[in-house]
Design a protein around this nucleic acid. Structure first.
Lengths: 213, 213
DNA sequence: GAATGTGTAGTCAAACTTGACTAGCTATCC
DNA sequence: GGATAGCTAGTCAAGTTTGACTACACATTC
């Protein structure tokens, strides 16, 4: 599963009602175009697809107020909200190899409540540790690890990445337990979207390096 | 760029001449179906595509000797070899967010010579450090990092991952410099493919966990 | 000896992603 | 005051990925 559905659902949900360009802009504001496949085509495709599946409700809207072609506004449905929360929980839990999914989930974690997030992250750490044990066990058979030659470096890389992921998750758990951030039901939420007319400080222009992918 | 082209080119090259099922089997032997998109459809597609582009030469072969439909054998062309080496170098260098690309490159790094690999990996480390500096600089503007709220955790995660990647790369550099593995031009290479009839110890069946993606 | 499973080899439609493109409106510059 | 750049909003074709499916042959089981 790619991160795009989670990102789009979450963005629409924060707005209440949003058209494609707004979603696109939000994702850029979060830097999502740098660490995920949040490109225009994918975003508009996801919106249409999820509208077809009943996760979003599409309002056909007259020609836009600010130039350009007519636009469609979307609103998240009940089914969409259920899917969103399910994706969000799953993404915080899953030890996928896809860092974009975790990144997206981090951006929305405050939509859950603090205790639940702590539980999910702790489970995440446990899963990683189990995975690590199983892998090192499975790939170091009776013949010894030297059998694998340089191929063993692949496993070594993954194990190292998993360790780093577990360590980082542990750090996050401690920050959250220590009272950082504002979670669901804890008062005024942090606003992570651009309100209409607000300028985007991270808009295209001079991005930081790495834009070579 | 996904890892599939590099994987397929490398597999065909090691065999000299291979049909799709052989490539598919090799990639499974390397565990590539677990950390990359090396699924049957992608493999056959890549073979056909690259044959069309002149990177592989397709030999139409009569009905297979062991059941199933007739098969096509592929051989890498000169252009394909050039592309392969270019992809390989690029993948060792690039600080993509795609770990599968690096994994694939690790499996083939011994096709280059030791000094070149060391150079590429050192450049990799430098690139990561530069990227890190640029990112932390760019995303902690005059307002201070607290401005970002929990969104800052996304950047924190990426920076942490980059640090872990740099550290791991540094370790690999030291192992290679210390004489580990057999690189191009250093005698009998490590054989990383299944010869005909050899059983695959990592064939489908009881895989280690994580197969939930 | 008929059914059932397993390995070989590959195809296919549906879904997704990409990058380039369209097209209208506004502000700005000389 | 004409052009030219940039923003708004989205479409489109081409390419890629996925997961399920086909089809044959050999082996095993009941």
């Amino acid at each position: 599963m790619s991160a795009i559905r989670l990102l789009v659902l979450g963005a629409v949900r924060q707005h209440g009602r949003a058209h494609g360009y707004q979603v696109r802009n939000d994702l850029e504001y979060w830097g999502a175009h740098e660490w995920s496949n949040a490109k225009p085509g994918s975003i508009y495709h996801a919106l249409k697809q999820m509208a077809k599946q009943g996760l979003l409700h599409a309002h056909e809207i007259a020609p836009s107020t600010a130039g350009g072609p007519p636009r469609t506004e979307y609103e998240i449905t009940e089914k969409g909200t259920a899917e969103y929360l399910s994706l969000l929980r799953e993404s915080l839990l899953a030890h996928d190899q896809k860092p974009d999914v975790l990144s997206a989930a981090l951006g929305f974690m405050v939509d859950l409540d603090r205790e639940e997030v702590l539980g999910l992250l702790q489970q995440r750490v446990r899963t990683i540790r189990q995975w690590r044990a199983a892998v090192t066990d499975h790939y170091t058979p009776e013949d010894g690890p030297a059998q694998l030659g340089h191929i063993g470096e692949i496993m070594n890389f993954w194990v190292h990445s998993a360790d780093a992921g577990a360590e980082w998750t542990q750090g996050l758990i401690e920050r959250i337990r220590g009272g950082a951030y504002t979670f669901a039901g804890e008062g005024e939420p942090f606003v992570g979207v651009l309100t209409d007319g607000q300028e985007n400080p991270y808009a295209t222009g001079q991005r930081h390096p790495e834009d070579t992918c």
